[in-house]
């Protein structure tokens, strides 16, 4: 974990208020693992006060990328930043996805992305395909409509199979990406169970958690929470997890990636 002033290399609108920002941060890039995040101070002053967390979307040499949607004041300020400006960032933070070991004999990997949740899953797909090129990866990308779909081409270029769901049916399956997952599952037969990795809105993750319980496949979900410190010090970001009764774990430090089976969904 380091704190650096990172130079913005590019901040490009992808349409529908979605942006991709590239930063020069070799000290963070060389350590970052899929599912980890950076904590960004969007303003040099104190408005807004707190940093904003963003998943690492991609690492390429000196460069790291984030993918974000303008949802409030913080991201709105971020969207107006220009190449050449500097951002104070902390990272890489949190515990990322547990990658399937190179030797394990498993069948399919399924990545389920909702909205900008796709950000961390592209990094994951890249890492898996480098570490274990034999594995076949199926990616389910969900969005409200076709304009908001992200990264489809990037996944295909990596050799992943991609299926799409849009809520209004303007592309692919009409409905939620969690429903699409249930349709795609190899439920019967001798095929070993898939491993599922999911990132997106909490409602979506909750449904995927349910599906994973029903069909008994291992499933890791990456949670989004409001953060304050981002480093595990303030205990502001907890989720309820199973213990002898229950315990609280910190999304920023013990997560953001959790085993779906470990979480107590409210």
């Amino acid at each position: 974990m380091v704190q650096v002033d990172a130079k913005i290399l590019e901040n490009r609108e992808l349409g529908s208020q979605r942006y991709k920002m590239a930063l020069s941060a070799p000290q963070i890039g060389c350590q970052a693992k899929p599912g980890q995040f950076i904590h960004v101070r969007v303003s040099k002053g104190f408005l807004p006060l707190l940093r904003r967390p963003f998943s690492v979307h991609r690492v390429q040499g000196q460069k790291i990328e984030i993918l974000y949607k303008v949802v409030g004041k913080g991201t709105e300020i971020l969207s107006r930043k220009k190449g050449g400006e500097y951002l104070d960032i902390l990272g890489p933070l949190g515990k990322g996805y547990q990658l399937p070991s190179a030797t394990s004999k498993i069948s399919d990997i399924i990545l389920v992305a909702g909205g900008t949740g796709v950000a961390s899953l592209l990094f994951l797909a890249e890492s898996i395909s480098v570490a274990n090129p034999e594995l076949s990866i199926l990616v389910l990308v969900g969005a409200k409509n076709r304009e908001e779909l992200l990264c489809e081409g990037d996944f295909r270029r990596l050799g992943c199979r991609v299926e799409v769901a849009t809520e209004n049916g303007t592309r692919g399956y009409k409905g939620l990406v969690s429903e699409l997952l249930e349709k795609c599952l190899p439920l019967s037969g001798d095929r070993p169970k898939p491993i599922v990795f999911a990132c997106g809105p909490s409602e979506m993750l909750k449904m995927i958690g349910k599906i994973s319980r029903k069909h008994r496949f291992p499933c890791q979900v990456s949670l989004e929470e409001r953060l304050a410190c981002g480093v595990g010090a303030c205990l502001g970001c907890v989720v309820k997890t199973k213990g002898s009764t229950y315990t609280y774990k910190r999304v920023c430090k013990d997560g953001p990636v959790f085993d779906a089976g470990e979480l107590i969904w409210e």
Binding site: L49, E225, G236, C237, V238, Y248, E266
Partner: peptide
């Protein structure tokens, strides 16, 4: 102490509200 149920933190104008509950 386990502390309070989340959400425990929210940002307000130039401030932060917390209800950690002494976890």
């Amino acid at each position: 102490r386990l502390g309070n149920d989340p959400p425990r933190i929210v940002e307000t104008a130039s401030g932060v509200l917390n209800s950690i509950g002494l976890q």
